[in-house]
């Protein structure tokens, strides 16, 4: 809705600098922006229900089709790096907590914080220059629509996405696990002779699965809206690139569709997490 107020008159932008007043008016009629805001709002509501977003003002393609095309590249970028990143950070968190020395523990924290203190953009620029341009290990950017041939282009973005997510994830998992480690049952488990490693995997991890899955679920909407930076730098035609183009050309139907899609996924993920709770924790019942 913000874009209704701030976007300026889209008809002016489309018709170009030298359009006559009549041309602008006819374009307005075509787009439906001459109608009162309330009617536009009801039109918007019906679009949400019917999933019919009409056509893009910029390319005249169907918005739904554009999103469908962009979804594949985005998911092939975000999903593998997300899953592998999660597993690595969980593994590092548990391994680092296992060590009795507070030095190792502290070192992991400081390393995570250091990783987090470098700008995302700087990571991309440095990695692209070093590994793709200088060492020529990967293509600098580009894309192949074929499912099998696209992975060389994805390798470097995967690594960067994982590296950036590693710091906050490890710190979060460790603090959640640490809290659980102070519970009395951990003392009991250790007292009866269980090893710390076994206690961590079998008792502590299970009990902290609930807060961990909440934290993970919050990141899921971003998998679909995609990483604008990675897609822009590596030339991946995903949702992030689509969004940037739409913002730059004030392509309202596309912006609206992506906004609603993001909100929808957000609501859906919350719902699924709530249902998932009852599976993880039998004490939780849905009302």
């Amino acid at each position: 809705m913000i874009f209704h107020v701030v976007g300026g008159d889209p008809a002016y932008q489309m018709a170009g600098k030298y359009a006559s007043a009549e041309q602008v008016q006819s374009l307005r009629q075509e787009l439906g922006t001459d109608k009162p805001l309330l009617i536009q709002y009801f039109g918007f509501l019906s679009q949400i229900i019917s999933f019919n977003w009409g056509n893009s003002w910029q390319t005249s393609q169907s918005v739904l089709q554009m999103i469908g095309l962009a979804m594949g590249p985005t998911l092939s970028l975000s999903l593998p790096s997300f899953i592998v990143g999660l597993l690595i950070s969980l593994l590092i968190s548990i391994k680092s907590l296992k060590s009795k020395q507070s030095h190792t523990n502290e070192l992991v924290s400081v390393l995570c914080l250091a990783l987090m203190s470098i700008s995302f953009v700087a990571y991309i620029i440095i990695f692209q220059y070093l590994f793709a341009y200088k060492l020529d290990l990967f293509p600098v950017n580009g894309w192949d629509p074929s499912l099998l041939k696209r992975w060389p282009y994805l390798f470097l973005p995967w690594i960067i996405a994982m590296l950036v997510a590693l710091g906050p994830n490890i710190l979060l998992f460790r603090s959640l696990l640490k809290k659980e480690m102070e519970q009395d049952y951990v003392v009991t488990a250790l007292a009866k002779g269980l090893s710390l490693e076994r206690t961590l995997w079998h008792h502590i991890l299970r009990n902290s699965l609930l807060p961990i899955s909440t934290a993970i679920s919050l990141q899921i909407p971003f998998l679909i809206t995609g990483s604008i930076l990675l897609e822009a730098f590596f030339g991946i035609p995903g949702m992030g690139s689509l969004l940037i183009e739409a913002i730059q050309s004030a392509d309202l139907p596309v912006i609206k569709a992506i906004t609603v899609l993001g909100a929808l996924v957000y609501i859906l993920v919350n719902l699924i997490t709530d249902i998932f709770y009852t599976v993880l924790d039998p004490k939780v019942t849905l009302q």
Partner: peptide, 14 residues
Amino acid sequence: SIPYILLIAGLSFA
């Protein structure tokens, strides 16, 4: 629920 970058972009445009 609004993608963050859209929110910021909207405000910055305004």
